[in-house]
């Protein structure tokens, strides 16, 4: 008996989705379940995991409060700084740049991604180190400037590393922006600043929210930049996790922190979606 067309379509859909689903299950769902199980276990005397059912790991979260605090502060601040820097760039690319060069300019934004963040951050260590910019400043008489291993260096590294992730979504939403809306706003008496805050910014908010959520979430797990540009003196949750899994090998506690981190990420996403949702109804055909 030949299959009904609908059944056949379903089978095809399943066949297409199956590999991705299997991949997600094996590499995302299973590990997460393992981490969830670990989080309620105990550390074995020599390190690692020992089966148990206890909330002790979660009760101990307070001992990494400083790491959570640092991360919760730096992640939004870093994302905000990224936003401040990214928005004008995205605006320029989407609105002001000549279409002739736009593709080239947009590519330039993405090009750094072809090199690993490790190499690029390592390069910053040299630029900010005393033989880098401080040396150049020294030549013009400004001596003993410290740049590397300061909180400023960490923020710089964060803005540098995550900028493209912020620029692209904002660029995409600004590119869809109908420039006639800006003319209409000016025509109705709005000064450029009013037009920006009344029209441009609200209509690019989906991109802003996407970029901010993306950068914030990735920053919540960041450990390389504080390690390399902060001299290891800035302690993020990511650094706490690395230490717990690779140094003290307290897997259950590390798992509990990871689970908590995931919960925070989900929360951040929900808030971001909430805000974006409010403006979702506005992405209409007349915009495109």
């Amino acid at each position: 008996m030949p299959l009904a067309p609908a059944t056949k379509r379903n089978l095809v859909t399943s066949a297409l989705v199956a590999p991705a689903a299997a991949w997600l299950f094996v590499f995302l769902v299973l590990p997460f379940i393992a981490i969830l199980v670990f989080a309620f276990g105990e550390r074995a005397p020599e390190g690692g995991y020992q089966a148990a059912f206890t909330f002790a790991q979660f009760a101990n979260l307070g001992s990494r409060a400083a790491a959570f605090r640092n991360t919760m502060m730096i992640a939004p601040v870093g994302a905000f700084l990224c936003l401040i820097v990214a928005y004008p760039v995205a605006y320029f690319l989407a609105v002001k740049a000549s279409p002739k060069y736009r593709l080239v300019l947009v590519s330039l934004v993405v090009v750094p991604f072809w090199t690993s963040l490790l190499v690029r951050t390592y390069a910053w260590m040299y630029i900010l180190g005393s033989r880098g910019l401080p040396n150049l400043l020294d030549m013009v008489g400004i001596s003993d400037v410290r740049m590397l291993n300061t909180p400023g260096a960490v923020l710089l590294g964060i803005v540098y590393g995550y900028l493209p992730l912020m620029i692209m979504p904002i660029y995409v939403s600004l590119e869809k922006l109908d420039l006639r809306l800006l003319e209409a706003s000016a025509d109705l008496g709005a000064k450029p600043l009013s037009t920006f805050f009344g029209i441009t910014l609200p209509l690019s908010l989906p991109g802003v929210m996407t970029g901010t959520a993306l950068v914030t979430i990735l920053l919540l797990g960041e450990y390389l930049i504080p390690q390399l540009l902060g001299g290891g003196k800035v302690f993020f949750i990511g650094n706490a996790l690395v230490d717990l899994f690779l140094q003290s090998r307290n897997w259950p506690f590390g798992s509990a922190i990871a689970v908590t981190l995931v919960a925070v990420v989900v929360l951040v996403l929900l808030v971001a979606m909430r805000i974006a949702w409010r403006f979702a109804g506005t992405r209409q055909v007349d915009l495109v």
Binding site: L181, E183, T282, Q284, D286, L287
Partner: peptide, 20 residues
């Protein structure tokens, strides 16, 4: 004189209404 200081208003082609 920029548009926002001119005593004229325009009905744009395709209207350019603010979708939000």
């Amino acid at each position: 004189i920029p548009p926002y200081r001119r005593p004229v208003n325009m009905v744009f082609q395709h209207y350019a209404l603010f979708p939000h």
